[in-house]
Computed example of a mutant assay.
Amino acid sequence: MPRENYQERLDELREDVVAMGETVCDRLDDAIEAAVTGDDELAQSVIETDHEVNETYLALEDECTELLALQQPVAGDLRLVTASFKIITDLERVADLATNVAAYGGPEGGVHDAVDVRDLGDGAREMVVDAVDAYAARDPDACREIAASDDAFDERCREASEAVVRELLKADRARDAARDGPAPTDGEALEASLDEVSQALLAVRDLERVADHAVNIAARTLYMVENDDELIY
């Protein structure tokens, strides 16, 4: 393969990874909207089109494998290909998590309102967008900022999970009061089924995992740019 064509393929690989990231972020947007509003049609669209992301992932995986096998890149080129291979894996998993999040709203309404899915979802999505932008711009400082922001996001997820548990306890107390005497006037407002609580906790867990994949992307990008593995281990 002529050297010019080889360099073009590396450039195209980087562009294709960024395009995949943009597609995945769009799917995550739709998933968050479906979870918040309970839009079953939108949720089904996210779920049913996941195969498109999988096909993109497989095509880029093949491209990375071929570049490694036929070109045997070294130094910076090798780090670009191997980092891209890892990053598309993280993006594919973000898309899988988006299908989960989309399904949590259900046809009867959105995720339990003890969880601000919009706020958490937007936060996780922003981390993925920033990570893909850092990859595109080869920005090591942005990579470190993304990793540093993860602790704060984890804390937000912890607080959200605790809020769900508190709502469950309130509902249990309301049911106990109803058995012992007249139900409190706000008993229905506090009622939360086990399924609703479970879905809310799963939504929080999956959004936290989305943020974790954003950190993984940032870590691989930092390694690609500076040969620095400080965020990987």
Rank of each mutant, 00 (worst) to 15 (best):
L67W: 00
L68R: 13
A69C: 02
A69E: 00
L70F: 14
L70G: 06
Q72A: 14
Q72D: 03
P73A: 13
A75V: 13
A75P: 12
G76P: 14
D77P: 03
L78M: 15
R79C: 00
R79I: 00
L80D: 04
L80G: 03
V81G: 08
T82E: 01
S84E: 00
S84A: 15
F85T: 01
F85H: 11
F85W: 12
F85R: 04
I87P: 08
I87F: 02
I87V: 15
I88S: 06
I88K: 01
T89L: 10
D90T: 10
D90L: 02
L91Q: 07
L91G: 12
L91E: 12
R93W: 02
V94F: 02
A95K: 04
A95E: 08
D96R: 08
L97Y: 11
A98E: 03
A98N: 11
T99L: 09
T99S: 15
N100P: 00
V101H: 01
A103C: 03
G105D: 13
G105R: 09
G106N: 11
E108P: 02
E108T: 12
E108R: 15
E108L: 07
G109E: 10
G110S: 07
V111F: 07
V111D: 07
H112E: 12
H112Q: 09
H112V: 14
D113L: 09
D113K: 08
D113Q: 10
V115P: 08
V115R: 08
V117D: 06
R118M: 08
R118P: 05
L120Q: 03
L120V: 13
L120R: 03
D122H: 01
G123L: 02
A124S: 05
A124F: 05
R125W: 01
R125C: 08
R125V: 11
E126Q: 15
E126F: 00
E126S: 14
M127D: 12
M127Y: 04
M127A: 15
V128Q: 03
V128R: 01
D130Q: 12
A131F: 02
A131S: 14
D133Y: 05
A134F: 05
A134M: 08
A134V: 09
A136N: 08
A136L: 09
A137C: 02
R138V: 01
D139Y: 03
D139H: 05
P140S: 11
P140N: 05
A142H: 06
A142V: 07
C143S: 11
R144Q: 10
R144M: 10
I146S: 10
I146H: 02
A147Y: 02
A148H: 06
D151I: 12
D151Y: 00
